[in-house]
Design a protein around this nucleic acid. Structure first.
Lengths: 139, 139
DNA sequence: AACTTGACTTGGACTAAGTCCAATGTAGGA
DNA sequence: TCCTACATTGGACTTAGTCCAAGTCAAGTT
């Protein structure tokens, strides 16, 4: 987990207690938390941390490429700390739970030039949807 | 455009002026509008239509499968009326403009059983990201 | 054509998620 | 130790969307 902190320090991040706990929360579990969940977990370690700081820090981590935003159908964005390994997502349409998945194939190669409309294409996200075992059992 | 209205009527939709203008707005242009943009265009034809009705109607069209929700990075969801033809999206990271694209390949087949975690997988969305020609010219 | 009724619409209050900002605090270099 | 540019705070604000009780109306029935 100090890997992440080292990388950030190496990039000129001023290291504060707030940034440290946010980084630790994200680095600690490979689940996909909302900003509010990150705030709650961070506040457990550093009670006076503000929501604004959590949003700021998450935004910085995203632009540094350390964390990826995932938009599910639910309203709140989720933050995926597993940004260093390329992967895609499988989301339960009912409960919103997310798994990281690794499909075979190369989806970027599947978009021919004629379908690019002059865009400079830099990446692709695949979002598989379905029902998780628990939710499927309820239906 | 009356295709859509016919289909809806055939499914037992009670046809009201409000639903008609919303359907017409979506059916009229193949752009990807936000709920507020749909409301604005609908209100141009039927000034007293309320936002709640637009949201209700969009929600119904989505659950009927006539329209697809697209979550970009921006906050508001966009509504894609081109639901009858399977396709994916190419989004400009800068201005948020969206194009429909048709990649080759079968992404569902690219997710092996070992990567499904017991989920019942029902679909997949591919979101290509990059810069549109206009935005690329600005950088 | 008038009646009936349950589905539809309305507007306004409410909630959730996120942004902004002026005042205050502090990490890290000199 | 001091300085200062960068970071944090909390609270107001905005945006996007939901909810609901009251009123309206489409379409089937007579």
């Amino acid at each position: 987990m100090s890997d992440l902190l080292e990388r950030l320090r190496g990039r000129g991040w001023r290291m504060t207690a707030q940034r440290r706990v946010v980084a630790e929360v994200l680095d600690g579990e490979h689940v996909h938390l909302t900003a509010d969940e990150v705030h709650a977990r961070a506040a457990a370690k550093l009670p006076e941390i503000s929501r604004a700081t959590v949003y700021n820090t998450l935004g910085e981590l995203v632009s540094l490429g350390e964390v990826v935003e995932v938009s599910t159908d639910k309203r709140a964005k989720r933050y995926d700390p597993n940004a260093h390994r390329p992967h895609h997502h499988l989301i339960c349409a009912r409960c919103g739970s997310i798994r990281d998945v690794h499909p075979t194939g190369n989806p970027l190669a599947d978009l021919p030039a004629s379908e690019r409309f002059g865009f400079t294409v830099s990446g692709v996200e695949m979002t598989y949807r379905g029902l998780c075992p628990d939710c499927a059992a309820l239906v």
